[in-house]
Nucleic acid binder design. Structure first.
Lengths: 225, 225, 225, 225
DNA sequence: AATGAATGAGCGTTCATTCAT
DNA sequence: AATGAATGAACGCTCATTCAT
């Protein structure tokens, strides 16, 4: 997981083109993918410019077409990559040795931090929803990738019910949705919400306070009685 | 749930005699605005096509520029209009005669329903966040428009504290953010979340069940003890 | 004749629209004509904007079409007006009481000053030449208007030959052309020539020195022996 | 007189083997540049149509933007090219073996002929002056390019003073300006002046007679005593 | 005499993409 | 594996002009 306090958005594309060539095909592919994530996140699918992506890489525009065929395939690759990265994060969080309440607290905190630290990822998902999920449908493997998150919550709920700390009638998908919604909104709507209610979510203290409210909300949601 | 895309409440034009040009001007403007809302919501700012908007109106592309100067100003007008529409909704909900708990329940239900019924509005806000709030900053009056929502919650919390049903330490902005996040996510992420976890939020039963979970979550968040 | 030291070009169109209406048709016509001269002079025929002209007047764009039918006719009216104004200038200069040499000196000086003082007029003529004289051909009366200038020079040359100060074989059209060319170029090419050779023709001293060189050139051109 | 519009001196392309793309790039650029000169000269900057320029080339409109970014940059390139072409002409005229008077005569005749033979070049300069020199300012190197003309005249004047044929107090910039004004006006104002005074400057005899008057004017301007 | 609303044609420009090597 | 040159389609926008009153 990256530094949870790094909330900075991607700045204007740096002209960091170096003269050295990417050493091999895979490196070039990755190089393009990173640039594309940044550009798609900043400008959405339609607003993103293939030229801009090319300028951010160490290679040329022609290579983008060489590796990804067209803009849509590139976007798809970025989308897939983004979802896979979050899975890696979830399996990293070790919860087994903690009490259900503490485990859930840790999971929520980690999720809030992870999302805040990856605004590009959030923006890619936002954009995919603006596109009405037309691309994600072409990535069926994401279903299994993400069902892991549900399994994890299901086990956690079971443990919580067992020790009496959680109520019995919790649907893990709803719980996941609550966690996601609260941590996602923080990032997705930071500009409009932040502007209207004068909250700067880039401020670490504001972030920490909000995170605590989210934890509070989730714990109260699951708590027995 | 209301008709998702029906924003217009223009009554049938009175067939009185001097329904002159000046009258048509406003009608033309509104006509364009509605088409623009729909197109910007569908495709985002960059993806939206002025030609497409024009084709959706009873007038020509030229008129879009006549009334709104350029695409950006048109988008801005749509954004402003959208935020103002939600204010109208909030003042419509009458809560005063209900107990604090019931009032909050009603407010949350109404908010969830309103947002689900206005996906275009949600998409416009999503898009504005992708644009990093660059346009909303030019609409400072939105601050006062939306602060009404906070006042309403503040009064509600006070009543809840008074009668012992709410805990004392609730920040109304956090409460508002929780309500917004949970009801917004429902719509904003319906495609990706719905695909991955196989939930169809267009199904009224699914919607109602989810709404109940959101109400539950909010009530548990404010409840005393 | 206007202040010969006023070499200032027309600045950006001042938003001097007043609420008072033009008192009558002729005033409105003149008002439009002046605005049009300024705009055509600044931007050429194609570059001139009917909207810009309208903004410079006390009336509306629609009136331009009311009085002048279309852009081309308006341009034509401006062209005609400009040529007629120069005729008025020439008949104003009284030369009869001066010796031929002094009379010619005075005429040249007056011409140089007049042209320097009326850059808009020069620019209109430049533009008409860029348009390959396609409009002036529709104004045959300009021929007689301008032939007055030749008559004046012819009489002056005759007097000069008579008193022995001018050589005999001077063609008054060539003489007129020399005077015109030297005084016209001063204004017409002031930007390119001034930039390349670092001469600021707006400086009164620079103007006076250049005027003297033009006088010198003309007098030497006609002088006997 | 040379062929009026033949600016190109590109030799026949060598039919060597690797006349690759890179070679075509320059040819394409030149092709566009020539078409643009012609169109800008005919219609001015605003009146010129990018489509028209494209139609005159062997390539497409898209290539204009590929090589010149936009209309203004293209115009700038044309302006620069035009000024550079005239320099080449001046260094070609060999004056050293002639007497100062004959050298000046030859220079003036050559200048008159050159300008008469390149009306497009004159029109470009006229247009730049209508644009108030806003583009030429971005081409500072033109200053040094054109200062060569002054040096040439300065040396010529010195020789003339030495052998007693020229007067001492001649400013070479004024002399250059006189030559330029007289030969420029011939072309720049040919339509309006020609129409009003019924002179057809396209007629070789009319041209030759006028050229002689210009020579006469210049020689009298510099002559000693 | 005067005007605000409306318009079709076309303009400069940009875009993702492909060609030829 | 890599690239500079080339491109058609379409995009946002502007223009002079006319309509209806």
């Amino acid at each position: 997981m990256r530094d949870p306090d790094n909330f900075s958005d991607t700045p204007a594309p740096p002209a960091r083109k170096r003269t050295t060539r990417a050493k091999n095909a895979e490196a070039t592919r990755q190089n393009i993918l990173e640039a594309a994530l940044s550009e798609f996140a900043r400008s959405g699918f339609s607003g993103a410019r293939v030229d801009t992506i090319a300028d951010m890489t160490q290679t040329s525009k022609r290579m983008i077409y060489y590796y990804f065929s067209n803009k849509e395939e590139l976007y798809l690759a970025v989308l897939e990559e983004s979802y896979k990265k979050i899975r890696a994060f979830e399996t990293e969080v070790s919860l087994d040795e903690l009490s259900p309440v503490n485990a859930l607290r840790k999971l929520v905190e980690a999720t809030v931090d992870y999302q805040a630290g990856h605004p590009d990822f959030i923006r890619i998902i936002m954009n995919e929803n603006i596109l009405q999920g037309s691309n994600i449908e072409r990535l069926p493997e994401l279903r299994s990738v993400n069902s892991g998150a549900i399994d994890l919550l299901r086990r956690l709920c079971a443990r919580g019910v067992d020790d009496g700390s959680f109520r019995e009638d919790i649907n893990p998908v709803d719980l996941h949705m609550n966690i996601s919604a609260l941590s996602f909104f923080n990032v997705s709507n930071r500009y409009t919400f932040g502007f209207i209610f004068d909250r700067n979510f880039s401020d670490p203290e504001v972030h920490a306070a909000r995170r605590e409210q989210i934890v509070e909300s989730i714990l109260r949601y699951v708590r027995a009685a």
